Simulated assay, not measured.
Amino acid sequence: MKKVILITGASSGIGKETARYFAAKGWNVIATMRSPEKETELTKLDNVLVTKLDVQNIESIKSAITAGISHFGQIDVLVNNAGYGQMGIFEAAARQQIVNQFEVNVFGVMDTIKAILPHFRERGKGMIVNISSGAGKFTLPMLSMYAASKFALEGFSEALSFELSALNIKVKIVEPGGTQTNFNQASADVFAHDASLTDYDPFLAAAGKMFDTMKQASITSIEVAEVIYKAITDGTDTLRYAIGNADFNQRMNARRQMEDQEYIDSIKNGFVKYLQQ
């Protein structure tokens, strides 16, 4: 019997490529998105069910899971991919922007997991893959809200992996960085900024220069899909899988290897030089 995977946020980027990748590997795929009526590619694949799921709407989560089980008979893996990055100045962010960041990146993940766990418990097995980010391991200027949501996701996922291990349900975390998707544009569209907060102007200018130096070759969504496939099929209890460009890998290694304050100071010192220019 073919295995079945449910993917949230499958309308573009990593989610869409993961749906394609697993379909090509012979899996049955439940590709979920907020506006399935707009999808024209995945609907052409015989082993893909495209259906509505908005992680901010619990009823749509339950309906998508029910539809998937009804269509394919079971669900073996849940990939929580839906998410976005609320970038910008924390003081300039509207409270609703902050709430939305956590509703999508954290509470939406929790609600989706809670909705599928009865099915996994009934079957005596299952797997959950949460798509995190390097921002769940290290922070940078203007990432306070996004990093907060991903740090929360990392802690939740790690603790949950202990709870569910006794039920033969595995939890995995994939941490992409520097990926070629529409993520940056989506984040730019909701950038938190207030022109009246002129005290932040030197910071914003320095942050811009800092981010310019970080632009390196990006990895593709297909490469991330390959790592997701490895995480699901490698037969291990490995919790975290990181994949990214050279800058991402350098920062991840620094966070792992440096003392905490040493790492914090390195980021501050690297940033201060742009303030002084």
Rank of each mutant, 00 (worst) to 15 (best):
K137L: 11
F183L: 14
L49F: 04
D260E: 10
K38L: 14
F138C: 02
G124T: 04
D54L: 08
A246D: 13
S133C: 04
Q261W: 14
G85I: 10
G73E: 02
I264P: 00
L275H: 07
N57W: 05
D46N: 14
E158A: 13
A254T: 05
D54Y: 08
Y200T: 05
K16P: 00
E37V: 09
F120L: 04
Q185M: 11
K215R: 13
F151A: 09
Q96D: 15
A217T: 15
N80K: 11
F203R: 01
R251I: 02
V4W: 00
N47H: 07
A93C: 14
E158G: 10
V50Q: 00
G88M: 11
D260A: 08
V129C: 12
V106C: 11
L239D: 03
V29D: 01
D234H: 06
Q257T: 14
I75K: 00
N182R: 10
G26Y: 07
S35D: 10
V129Q: 04
A67P: 00
K3S: 13
F22S: 02
V48L: 08
G270K: 04
I219A: 07
F138G: 00
N249H: 03
E103F: 08
M87I: 10
I5M: 06
F138Q: 01
S132Y: 07
F271I: 04
D265S: 13
D54E: 12
Q74N: 11
P202L: 13
Q101Y: 09
S35A: 13
I89L: 15
